[in-house]
Computed example of a mutant assay.
Amino acid sequence: MADTIVRAITKDNNFRTIAIDGTEMLQQAASFHQATPMGINLLGRALLSTLLVSNAILKGDERLAVTIEGNGPAGKIVTESSATGLVRGYVTNPQVQTADIVSAVGTEGFLRVTKEMDGESQPFTGSVALASGRIDDDFTYYMLTSEQIPSLVMVDVAVDENKQVHAAGGFIVSALPDAKQEALDRFYQAVENMPEINQTLQKGQGTFGILERIFGNDNLKQLSTEEVSLYPDLTKREYARMLATLNNDQLQEMVEDDQGAEIVDRFTGNKIQFNTEELQNIMDQK
C-alpha cells in the first residue's frame, strides 16, 4: 500500500490539518544508508516533518530545503521536499548510537528553512534556534516564529533493533484565524490523551485515522489524498551537468591527478563514475 498524505479541515472551521503515513518511504530511505536504528529514527522524523510543513506552506512547484544542526553526535540533518509529496534527506552521521533523540541531535543550534519559490523569485531563508532537539518540536517553533502560523507538528517512528521500520507517520495541525479558545483547549487535551501515532498506523487505521484520533470522524472534512515518495534518483546526465559548472582547470585536474571522478550522492549513497574520456567530453562541450 502506497504511503499517503491527507489534507482536511474541521467542520467547525477551527483547524486545518495534514497527516502522513511514510512507513514504506522511510524503509526505502533507510536502505540507502548504513544507519543505526537511532539514525533511521532521526532521518524519519526529519523527512516526515519536512513533508508536513512543505505541504502546509508551499504550492505548485515550490520546494523546501531544511538543515538541522544541534551540535549533537548525529551532525547535520539535511532534507528537501516539494509541495507535491516528494522528499529526500540524510543524516551526516547515520551511525549515531545515543539513547534518545535529543542527545543525538543536540540543543545548541538551529533549524534553517529555505523556500525555493518560482523561477523569478529569490529563495527565502528563515532560521530559528532549536526549541528542544526533538525535530518535530523544532518545526512547531519554526511555524510559529517564522511563518507566524500557530501550529503543532508531531511525528512518530517505530523502528526495531534489526532496522525494520514498523510505522512512520505524523500530522501538522494549524489553527485558523477565527479558532475559538475552547476549541484550542479541546484540541490540546485530545492530543495529550491520544495513543502514539505508530500504534494507530500499526493497527491499520490508516493516515486519516491519525486525525480521527484527535478530532473524531464527525468533525473532519477530507480535502485531498496524495501519494508521497522519495525523489527519483538523478541520472548520470544530470550529474554531468553539475560537473560542467566547474571550471576547466578543476576538471583537468581530475583527469590528470585522479584519472576520473567519483560522485557520491549523499541522499542515496549511489556512486557515479566518470572516466577521463567522459570528463574530456564535458570540457569539450563547454
Rank of each mutant, 00 (worst) to 15 (best):
A74K: 01
V113N: 07
G72I: 00
V113H: 07
V96Y: 02
I101G: 07
S49L: 12
A56C: 03
V66M: 07
E69I: 00
T67I: 03
N93D: 04
V66D: 10
T50A: 13
S49W: 08
G85Q: 12
S121E: 15
N93T: 02
R88F: 15
F110L: 03
P94N: 05
L86G: 05
I68L: 09
M117P: 02
E80L: 02
N71W: 01
M117E: 12
L52P: 04
T107K: 13
K59N: 13
R112I: 03
S81N: 11
K76V: 00
N71C: 02
T79F: 08
K76S: 08
R88M: 15
L111Q: 07
E116W: 14
N55Y: 08
M117K: 14
T79A: 05
V87G: 09
E80T: 05
T98H: 03
T67R: 07
T79M: 10
G60C: 12
V91E: 03
V78C: 05
K115I: 09
D118A: 02
Q95K: 14
V78T: 15
N93K: 04
G85C: 11
L111V: 06
L51D: 04
G109I: 07
L64T: 01
L111Y: 09
S54V: 05
V102P: 01
M117L: 15
L86K: 12
G106F: 06
V53E: 15
T79I: 04
Q122F: 14
K59A: 10
V96F: 03
L58N: 10
S54G: 15
G89S: 13
N71F: 01
K59F: 10
T79Q: 06
K59Q: 15
V53P: 13
V96R: 01
G109K: 08
